[in-house]
Design a protein around this nucleic acid. Structure first.
Lengths: 231, 231
DNA sequence: CGGTCATTTGACGAGCATCAACCCCTGTGG
DNA sequence: CCACAGGGGTTGATGCTCGTCAAATGACCG
């Protein structure tokens, strides 16, 4: 593992405040792996053996039932996923696959639970991380139940656009995966983009230009209690 | 507060393992209040001042955005709600109102955070509670995105029916609230019940009799990773 | 007995999924 | 260099699911 990676992990909210010994013990027994695009990392219903940290690339969390499948979230660097299953020593509720070439750190679940017991600061960080994740899913549930698909797309674009300074969104995933994440079909996403063309949304392959933020904002009615990642 | 209540609270997963001093300190500064039906207990976007414990009655958690409103969950006795907001010292993402006459214990948020710092066993219980709540919402998100409204109703009925021994479900809330919880309109819920009549679902006011569990199960395709509350 | 409100039923339309056809890009193999 | 196959994306046609609006029914309560 490169020193840069160690620094990045150490700076995660989850590891920022733990004792040096805790951090080093966890890192020492972890595995850093590179995966090409499209690799299944974990499968729902499998026992949670590892806490995963995405250092580079992009990961899709998804769930399935009754032959249907849906994307729950994207995990971008640098952050962790499936902490809750690891802590409860339970099966995964979601599967995960790489959307692009990725580097993933895998920390044995047992070690995470043990470290939590021995390091109060670490347990405090875990509480914060769980509470944050909890609230993120509640927001997503509101997003799904309270908005139409075009509104979800518009708000997603706005949220991404705010991250970049020039109001341009570069899609890091296939449109059909984005459609699944937004709770719609690929055909419907295509049509939703057409609808938003009147609001200055220009689609050029994987680049989306937002030329009229005001009109888009007016249409999508962003709500901090759904869209603000910091709340 | 009655001794019975104290016992019930003490037996909650959240308080079962904490030190006696922690428990007594929290109880001492808490308020026990009775509320009639239909009272707004907390409002989304308000700062989280109290951790709430439902001792008796029934509480509806709901969210709103853009003039629309949806029920997120029901909170039955004896359990807590909005722990995540309390821990993060943040605003509520959901509102809460009583569905029936209820007795609610309100524990000052600041005291909860302080107790967590001082009692490791209590913090461990908080971790467990948060992880459980987190997973519950993920399951609900899958439920919403992967199932039609009739399937959600059928699975909800099955889950309720398993709790009672005779396969009879007594609705403790108005049907329109159940409809909102299931992500549909009251009209649609009524029609979904009609659809399920062929599967032995008999509606008699607030009593639902499930006369053909096998047919209903076959239709609703229950999935432990969505419907099992223990996972 | 009348009023209020939840629920149900019917009619209609919007939103969305499905199916199929087509375009376009890419990669492969002749 | 070209032909071709495969797959993602788009577009069109169609129908289902579900929401909306309105009216009727029925239960509860003053």
């Amino acid at each position: 593992m490169q020193p840069d990676d160690v620094d990045a992990i150490r700076n995660l909210p989850l590891f920022r405040d733990c004792m040096p010994e805790t951090f080093e013990a966890l890192i020492k027994i972890s595995f850093l792996q590179r995966f090409p695009q499209g690799v299944l990392l974990i499968s729902e219903n499998d026992p949670a053996d590892f806490l995963h940290v995405v250092l580079e690339g992009l990961v899709e969390m998804f769930g399935s039932s009754g032959g249907r499948e849906t994307t729950i979230s994207f995990v971008r660097p640098v952050s962790t996923f499936i902490l809750a299953a690891v802590l409860k020593d339970q099966v995964y509720l979601q599967s995960a696959r790489t959307i692009s070439r990725s580097r993933i750190l895998m920390i044995p679940a047992q070690a995470v639970r043990q470290a939590m017991q021995q390091d109060k600061a670490f347990m405090l960080s875990i509480v914060g991380e769980l509470a944050t994740g909890y609230r993120r899913v509640v927001k997503e549930l509101k997003n799904q139940k309270l908005r139409t698909s075009s509104e979800r797309l518009a708000n997603w674009l706005l949220a991404q656009g705010r991250l970049s300074d020039d109001g341009t969104v570069r899609l890091a995933m296939e449109k059909r995966v984005l459609a699944s994440r937004l709770g719609m079909t690929p055909e419907n996403l295509s049509r939703a983009f057409s609808t938003l063309r009147d609001l200055g949304v220009r689609v050029e392959g994987n680049i989306i230009r937002l030329e009229d933020m005001e009109a888009l904002t007016d249409f999508s009615q962003p709500n901090p209690l759904i869209d603000d990642p910091l709340i």
